[in-house]
Design a protein around this nucleic acid. Structure first.
Lengths: 335, 335
DNA sequence: ACAGTCTGTGTTATCGGTAACATGTTATCG
DNA sequence: CGATAACATGTTACCGATAACACAGACTGT
């Protein structure tokens, strides 16, 4: 184990002071271009690697932004994370990721862990937090951004869309195509905030259309997979055709339901319409293609990044921002 | 903004030395239980928050393990990451994630960035690295674990399986079911190491079975999506039925191909057998179910964690470990 | 009773950068 | 031409925790 190469070493090798090296390796204009080039070259030559830990310590700015996601095994969350991550990199920041498994208690633990790393901001996926977690955040005076929902009592900034409204659009669409016997296939428990909002949106929209009797089916606790959608419908058997539209909490569930219908010999959409949510890849490829809702996962990441940039790099940022990125209905072949 | 509360402040308030506070707040047994309790209480009272950054700096142990993945938007990589992440947490470490987008150049950048955070170990997803990146790692004397392949010239430890061998198993399976006109639908370019290994595995196994004429089809550069599998087959049209087995680089591609066949009115597996790779959710749910290969993504994460534990927490760990987690053929309804 | 050990605490120096200030050198201008 | 500004670099003192060592007092065993 050779000793670490530090700025001092680079400085000594060049006969300059460590300060000059420090300046040369950052975007500090007060160093001559020539010196900067020499420092860069020598640093590479010696295999010098900048020590962000030391910098973070000295400047009291960690360069971290902490992010919690319910699950990274979800194409949409993954996309948001990727776009946020890339944007942060452009700002010279790094993202610290934690996954809550759709549990508020787990989120609290995670927040504690992440806070010990001195992040400059915290990005949480949507709405439901323990009282303890809320207190922790308030106490810190740390910038907070919630994403993927637009909470009624936001902790800070928010970038998201209305899950309920999007589901309302889906309901109106299937009703327009003549369906009236609706069922909603969703997640159980109240841990999945977005799932709960979607369910509420379905019920509200249905009530507005004089369809108070939406049957609620349960695919299990979040995260719900294709297999669970499949199992839920297979469990019902051909009795599922008592409905003429099955609205699902997400595309994976919808696809599972679709496959189960195909195995039952039911025709989609003739015997039963099916809708998903999230515009996952599978929606555009399955046969028939799923009717779904596009959420702008990528844009959510970008918007969050923009807010963070404004707050952290000082360009304005007074007042809390609430950004609605909207959604769009994608009519496929299952309705 | 009040000044930060430090150990000094807590110490002063109690009339002890900062060292005693430091010891009390860690699991150091050399403080009396009584003192520890007093320190804890006072720390809470003053709103003291432990500064991990300072600790990381002083001890030169960051508590970070850096991980690179080609893409997090991939259920299998996500699963490995999740299991690794959870295990690391149990060891009091945190995972720093970076995504390479299947590019060695990008990986090099990323490694540089991650190294700047002083990780205690680096976990790379398989095989192909730039010379520069290799040099960086060697220079550091940092423990390195490669996963998802078993490279011929490993950089350090490795946890993976043979992509080629697994594909050989697939080839033998489809040939056993009577197919002889094989095509391989894979990724283009050599950036996708695992894809390249799979292709090589197909060609080798086919040659061994006296089937030298495997047609190579191209779904585009990694990451390949369902849509690309769909498009590749749709592009061929019914001519795809000149083959009697289409071996795909991954399940998403295979599922895309399957859907395209269904749209073309081809029967799978009667007109054409299709196989995937990776045992993604879709494989077990699609109708018909895909024949695929299970990779033990979860186990890979666990094994990596175990190795890291052994190395970093000192319990042995001399000599480089190469762990083969194996694969298993899953015969579905598409062959 | 006295050396030896064990306990609990304090002292000192330091990890690798960088803010703030100081200094020397070269352009610029009335 | 002297004064002042602009530029390039050096000096000093930290950021907050802790490893290593020092040390006083209590306990042990023979």
């Amino acid at each position: 184990m050779t000793a670490r190469v530090t700025m001092r070493d680079v400085a000594r090798a060049l006969g300059v002071s460590p300060m000059t090296v420090s300046r040369a390796l950052r975007a500090d204009r007060t160093v001559s271009e020539e010196t900067r080039a020499r420092v860069r070259r020598k640093a590479d030559e010696l295999g010098y690697v900048y020590d962000t830990t030391a910098q973070a310590f000295r400047t009291q700015r960690s360069g971290f932004v902490a992010v919690t996601l319910p699950s990274i095994n979800n194409a949409n969350f993954a996309e948001t994370f990727a776009s946020l991550s890339r944007a942060m990199e452009g700002q010279g920041r790094q993202v610290l990721l934690g996954s809550t498994n759709y549990s508020a208690a787990r989120e609290e633990d995670l927040v504690r862990q992440l806070l010990a790393r001195n992040p400059e901001a915290l990005v949480l996926t949507g709405g439901h937090h323990t009282a303890e977690a809320r207190a922790l955040l308030r106490g810190r005076g740390l910038p907070v951004v919630e994403m993927w929902t637009l909470p009624e009592r936001p902790l800070g900034h928010a970038v998201g869309f209305s899950n309920a409204e999007a589901m309302g659009r889906v309901v109106r669409h299937v009703v327009q195509t003549g369906r009236r016997r609706l069922a909603y296939l969703g997640t159980s428990g109240d841990t999945d905030v977005r799932g709960a909002e979607r369910k509420a949106g379905v019920l509200r929209a249905a009530a507005e259309l004089d369809l108070p009797h939406v049957v609620q089916l349960d695919a299990g606790p979040a995260p719900v997979s294709m297999a669970q959608g499949d199992a839920a419908v297979a469990g019902l058997g051909r009795a599922v055709a008592q409905f003429d539209a099955l609205l699902c909490v997400s595309d994976p569930v919808a696809f599972g339901a679709l496959s189960a219908c195909q195995r039952l010999g039911l025709s989609v959409p003739d015997d039963l319409a099916i809708t998903g949510f999230g515009a996952f890849d599978v929606a555009a490829v399955s046969c028939p293609r799923l009717t779904t809702v596009t959420v702008h996962a990528h844009k959510i990441g970008q918007q969050v990044a923009e807010i963070l940039h404004d707050i952290l790099d000082g360009h304005g940022g007074h007042g809390l921002r609430q950004v609605d990125v909207g959604t769009a209905l994608v009519v496929g072949e299952t309705t």
